[in-house]
Design a protein around this nucleic acid. Sequence first.
DNA 1: TTGACAACATACCCGATAGTATGTTCATCA
DNA 2: TGATGAACATACTATCGGGTATGTTGTCAA
Lengths: 216, 216
Amino acid sequence: MSPDVRERTVDSSRSAILEAAARCFHERGYAATSIDDVARALNSTKGRIYHHFESKADLFADVFRTGMEMNYAALEPLRKLDGPADRRWVLFARVHVNQMIATRAFQRVVWMGVEMHQTGAPTREQTSRYEDLIETRSRYGDIFRELISKARDEGRFHFPNLSIANQLMFMTLNSPIFWYSPRTGETRADIEDLIAQVVTCAWRGLGATEGLKNDA
Amino acid sequence: MSPDVRERTVDSSRSAILEAAARCFHERGYAATSIDDVARALNSTKGRIYHHFESKADLFADVFRTGMEMNYAALEPLRKLDGPADRRWVLFARVHVNQMIATRAFQRVVWMGVEMHQTGAPTREQTSRYEDLIETRSRYGDIFRELISKARDEGRFHFPNLSIANQLMFMTLNSPIFWYSPRTGETRADIEDLIAQVVTCAWRGLGATEGLKNDA
DNA sequence: TTGACAACATACCCGATAGTATGTTCATCA
DNA sequence: TGATGAACATACTATCGGGTATGTTGTCAA
């Protein structure tokens, strides 16, 4: 096996572990998920996981990081666009909600990671590296925060408090991670419809005066 | 000690346990909270808790139940009112959001309970009793669901899908359990302002055409 | 061909924790 | 006043799960 093929193999094994871990953390939460659970989900054993990850907290942190990287990557193509902030917001919001649905196990872990940090629960291991993750997540949130702030300045959104409006907006946009679950026979159009409803709800909640058009 | 006084003492001891348990579950989650944690929060020991509750799952279920009873009790005075559904919705929503803030530890446990039921995590003990709790929670949700359905029929709200609208609305109204935390020097007026912003956001999200007035 | 190492599996250790069994104290009541 | 039981505290058990130490297998490089 050539070195690069081996590297791809290692990466794919790591990815498989990350995905299984995301599913397990998603379904049972951090504390209730054992490393053996993740191993079982892989038809494998602990040894494999501890060969790739230092600890349970480390595995969780990597799922967290992977989830956020997916979000940044999805948003990246839109970063260079310009135009009215509220129009850009719509594009960003659609991509974000789509991410919440398409990668919801990872996104739920991101949510849990933020929550655990707020309450101080993540067993305090390597706090510095964890702080980085929180910081990264916070910068992701700022992308939207700045957009709605600008849109308010431009007279397109109307809300009294930026922080609260941002919180409420994210609650709406993130909400599919809690209640969405794929239906049998579900088409891409069904999902697009779902996304549209969520984005419209957030759009209205932000105090947009105009209606939401469905063009790009 | 007379029997009725003793009964009050027992009840107050039970309540103290429930409140401590709510705080602990709120801060660390179900799995990460040990009975010893709850006992420590009470300056007490396990013995006291197991004297009043059969198991950890039973304690959790009782916190769950208590949280919901608080909500029903808070809404009760409004049940007899009538008038346009959207006007009634505002009153209900305000009370609900106030509950989320005032009793957020309990409400967070309610949230966790619903979540755990969805993923099937609550260790499957006495599932029937747990189903009752979920059923009760569901009926509470229906109160709002019927209100917004009626308000839509009356042409006051505008949304394509009732279930999704209900989900999104509850996400907004419940959101303070995730991000609210009391500030030093916070007045009742500050909280009222917070409530107003949350309710307004949900109101707009439901597609209300009119603005929200601040009268009762 | 063989040594080395990656990628696991297996076996084991130990601390944490749910639950139990057994005190202990104090009020009430016969 | 002595017995009884509620309301706890204390001491203990058993299991589960994070982490480690040690095998095992296949691959590659020399």
